[in-house]
């Protein structure tokens, strides 16, 4: 009777964390690229001039809201996520011997 798979605790944690990170990366990509394209790109239908720079602390507004503010928010999310939401897991013991294979033994084992 086959024993059902029992994914280990670390695997389950790592998978959840990876899904969050991938979603977060996607959100950052979509927001930054979309915002910057809408407000910071010169296109034939949207010629921009120096008056459109609208600097905030010297930074063009599209860079301020499209890159720097998201960067700051990302930094906060990264720190909070890493500090409080990433689980501490046991990486396990170092394997004393390599998996048996036709290449023979491995000399470096501890």
């Amino acid at each position: 009777m086959p024993v059902p798979n029992r994914p280990d605790r670390l695997f389950r944690h790592a998978r959840s964390e990876a899904i969050f990170i991938a979603s977060f990366w996607l959100a950052c990509t979509v927001y930054c690229c979309a915002y910057c394209y809408m407000y910071g790109y010169i296109t034939p239908s949207r010629p921009l001039t120096e008056r459109d720079v609208k600097p905030i602390w010297g930074v063009p507004s599209w860079v301020f809201w499209g890159v720097f503010v998201p960067w700051l928010v990302c930094g906060i999310v990264n720190v909070v996520f890493s500090a409080w939401f990433v689980a501490d897991d046991d990486l396990g013991e170092e394997r004393a011997a390599p998996i048996a294979d036709p290449g023979g033994t491995e000399a470096d084992v501890a």
């Binding site: 990170i21 990366w25 890159v67 990302c74 930094g75």
Partner: peptide
């Protein structure tokens, strides 16, 4: 924007 994805690269 070119370098912007470094905001999420640590994760």
């Amino acid at each position: 924007l070119w370098i912007g994805s470094y905001m999420v690269a640590p994760l």
